[in-house]
């Protein structure tokens, strides 16, 4: 309204403001492509880490008698490593379907914590459609990489790029694993099992410099996980529950001591 009033007085301004607007749009588009590329780049270590695991999943699926079609479909639709491995194992054992689905649910409940945390980091103006699309690609790895980005607001193109490269590697690796059947020497395959942990360490170590609150929370989580795994009564809990309990207790402890959050 205001702009139109101004341009009525000086008609030459119309062209100028249109030019200005265009000039404002082009960098924004370039920016979208750029942040998408940044997302792809940030996801590269995940893609490297996923590939051998996806191949291993393909191999396991094949040896469990699961067809190429079902294995790839599982990677395409489920996109959650741990639960896919367990599901294939259970399928091979002839476990009841409802039990496999319940196990999958329990293992993946941890994503509830992660997306709750991410919900506060995504750009607030992002629509529900976009949010539900991006939600599909949230894994332990994409979540941790996205969360530890320095600008605190995460944009849609960035998260899309990050999720997409991880997803592609997971799906292609699964197909390759089923088709290869054999492939990599065992020693190399075993050493590649460390890949994603190396990435987690690569994310964690620099973030310890953020200050005492982070160090306290990480130590608490490690200690609680140790308890969960080695105290006989607790170690019977499903892996999914262990992670949910340790991580949420550690975060609650951190918030109790440091109500200002990470920056305190």
């Amino acid at each position: 309204m205001y702009g139109r009033l101004l341009s009525m007085n000086e008609s030459s301004n119309v062209n100028k403001s249109a030019e200005e607007q265009e000039a404002r749009f082009t960098p924004a588009e370039a920016n979208t492509a750029q942040t998408f590329a940044q997302g792809l780049k940030a996801g590269l270590p995940i893609a490297i880490g996923y590939l051998p695991i996806a191949i291993a999943f393909g191999l396991l699926a094949r040896s469990a008698g699961v067809s190429l079609y079902v294995a790839v479909l599982m990677s395409l639709l489920v996109f959650a490593g741990a639960s896919q491995f367990i599901a294939v194992n259970l399928l091979a054992l002839g476990t009841q379907a409802w039990e496999i689905i319940l196990t999958t649910l329990v293992i993946n409940l941890r994503h509830f914590l992660m997306t709750a945390s991410l919900s506060q980091r995504l750009a607030p103006e992002l629509s529900k459609k976009w949010r539900s699309l991006l939600a599909f690609g949230i894994t332990d790895e994409t979540f941790t990489v996205a969360s530890l980005q320095t600008p605190s607001i995460l944009t849609a193109p960035f998260v899309l790029g990050l999720n997409l490269i991880a997803y592609s590697s997971w799906v292609l690796g699964t197909g390759a694993g089923v088709l290869l059947a054999g492939g990599l020497p065992a020693a190399i395959q075993a050493s590649m099992g460390i890949a994603l942990y190396a990435m987690f360490i690569g994310l964690l170590v620099p973030s310890l410099r953020n200050g005492l609150p982070v160090i306290v929370v990480v130590s608490a989580a490690v200690a609680l996980q140790g308890l969960m795994n080695w105290v006989p009564v607790l170690s019977f809990l499903a892996t999914g529950w262990k992670l949910v309990i340790s991580a949420s207790l550690a975060a609650m402890l951190g918030a109790a001591f440091y109500p200002e959050g990470v920056e305190s």
Partner: peptide, 28 residues
């Protein structure tokens, strides 16, 4: 604010819990 701080700490808590003790068993 308490919940907000909690959610801020979640990524670090998750990282700690993912690495330990899982990494120890990752290569067999």
């Amino acid at each position: 604010p308490y919940l907000r701080a909690c959610l801020q700490f979640i990524p670090y808590a998750v990282l700690g819990a993912l690495i330990f003790p899982g990494a120890l068993y990752s290569t067999g």
